[in-house]
Design a protein around this nucleic acid. Structure first.
Lengths: 215, 215, 215, 215
DNA sequence: GGTTAAGCGAGACGGTACGTCTGGTCTTGTT
DNA sequence: AACAAGACCAGACGTACCGTCTCGCTTAACC
């Protein structure tokens, strides 16, 4: 979100013009940080639906225009807040590779489950998921900066396992990763059950059962 | 949703009173139908975020109070509208049982994918999923009336297959069903890829690979 | 201002339509009174330039929309407030007619000067004069409801004096009235000097000097 | 208005300091002229109420601070703009003295009426009158630089006539001048009627009727 | 002639109020 | 009593300006 100084504006002074884009170099870093911090606090306190730009501005000690100047929506604010504030690239930074695929995946999914049980993480992440479900443009951004990164880590670990002959050569690694994250995501977002280790362990086992060489 | 005239009001005629519950027998069926119809139309036209009670009332030719009297939220209206308007019990009415588990699941998931590609179905369903993600109470209702029903159909079909010895006896049928619906749900809600038959077929195959007896 | 239920809207449901006009019979009298009262208080406290609709609404315990629904501008609110609150038809209700024209005019102008020295009267009246100077539409309304009424009273008294032969038959009564009010108005609005009895008495004498029969 | 580098700052280099007064010798004359020009243009286009400092700055191609540095308010800008741009000392430069008082006054008032019928003159003058009505400090400045000058010219001409025995010796010349300008001002500012020659001629005659010696 | 301190164009900033929109409640008159 | 209609209090929306505050840049004035 925030500002990408891409080459999309053809002339600027032309006829179409429209919204005047601000100069990112003059941006007040202190205000920006205060806004992101306030967003995370407030979404945790009142939830996404009752999160308002006015409240963020007031909490951050900032004019509303300073938010509207730099972000197109409150979801975009949250996305910046989340990616900068704590979620450093998705559920985990990297899937460990001890050689034991099952153990590695169990460990990561357990850690992820724990993370999603932390309200400070859960509230903004859920807010972003909800916003993304309603706005394709935001969803793209959200996926590119959070979800896809996480998926890629699973794919990488699975590829390593495939190279080691621990899983069949014909498996679709992307699909396999989705089989790990999909049930997890659904259970979490729709609150279809507790995100405990029993569930994640069983999920890992069930998925791996379909990936192992037929011997 | 709508109104369950349960025995929760202890005194009613007391001092504090509170919410007067209306008499369902005097309800105007024509208004109710118009409200549900208008909800479905509007959510398809403007999406859930910009769906307003005022617009529903205006479109239905109904007073706002008639909506507030019978439903606690616009999501509840939509839920009634959806379960009565078209989604006759979730994605499908029943999983066929031809004896060929893979073929049956492929058929059902293909049909479901087609259904979720129909905007008239997709818009209100997505709206409900989004509302459910933000409101646990609503999510419960939503699951009870839509998702759980669907899941149960998969579980039933899988049980039949297990009884026929086509899948191992130790598999967790609920988890197996989640492995079918989870990736599907995630791909759909977060728009992580096209909901085509290639995807659903591959998903069915991948899940079944983990369920088959080891022989 | 407020609402004139004239027959100007031809069809309403037609193509032009536009602003939906509210139903004056359903108007909340208590809210209306509170708004007018608050307007008078606030214009006295902070002046017209810093008088805001928001502050009026807050002071009156009323939603902003209730003001915007019934009045087109804060000046219109003030005009209603002023004509109903205290200014009972302009500077004075009637010019006395004791037979002594000079004495009568002196008395009225002295009373008017006193009135314009009362901040509770002065603040809203000045606000209206200022608003009228900037908005011809409002000025028309203001004149019709306040200034013209006052002028007419002078004209009536002067006509009585003319009929009694106390002033020449060829004098333009309207102009004569303007010669009384014009210098007064200018001195007051532009603060060109004190509005004391010395001034008003001198003004009356100077004007009458030009009206008397030449003998 | 603008800046009077008077000796009001006691210490300047003190601790509290406060308002830094800028150095008038380093002032950019081109910017100053552009600001005054833009003010006059804009007040004619949108009126005083919707005249904004930002718009003046933008039209003049000038930073906002350059306006705030040299003028305390938009009214002060307008006052400078007006006194420099065209109204060179009020309605007229001098009242002619042909010996015929009535003819001289009629000529001046006719010219003044014509001037006040010119939008390029009327718009900023009305703006200043309005601003002055709301701000006593500004009104003082306005009077000193425009109105008083005009009044003094009338007084001078009347004094000349009095010395020539054309009007009585006991008349209050200041009041007489106000009887000419007051009705004119009121009619113009409150738009109580057309500012045509018929009006001004009648006004001159009516006033002079009260000034002539009783013979 | 190089340094330095202002004025300057530009515009980001913390604020306030705008006029609009919608939420959810209350009131009125009709069916 | 439910209903259509819509006025009401409340408060967030996104915009427009306010007046202040940096930023670099230009332009004297004084070394």
């Amino acid at each position: 979100m925030s500002q990408r100084p891409g080459p999309e504006q053809p002339e600027d002074g032309g006829t179409a013009a429209g919204r005047r884009q601000p100069d990112p170099t003059r941006r007040n870093a202190r205000s920006r940080a205060a806004i992101l911090m306030a967003s995370l606090q407030l979404v945790g306190e009142v939830g996404y639906a009752r999160l308002t730009i006015e409240a963020i501005a007031a909490r951050a000690g900032v004019g509303k225009q300073t938010i509207y100047r730099w972000w197109p929506s409150k979801a975009a604010v949250l996305l910046d807040a989340f990616t900068e504030g704590g979620g450093e690239g998705g559920p985990e930074a990297a899937v460990p590779d001890t050689g034991d695929l099952a153990a590695d995946l169990r460990a990561v999914l357990r850690a992820t489950a724990d993370e999603f049980s932390d309200p400070a993480f859960e509230a903004p992440y859920r807010a972003l998921a909800v916003a993304g479900a309603q706005d394709a443009e935001l969803a793209r951004e959200f996926d590119a900066r959070l979800t896809d990164v996480g998926t890629e880590l699973y794919v990488a670990r699975l590829r390593s396992a495939r190279d080691a002959g621990q899983i069949r050569g014909d498996v679709d690694l992307r699909l396999a990763a989705d089989m790990l994250t999909g049930p997890f995501f659904q259970r979490w977002l729709a609150r279809r059950g507790p995100l405990d280790h029993a569930f994640t362990d069983a999920l890992v086992d069930a998925v791996l059962a379909g990936l192992r060489p037929r011997d």
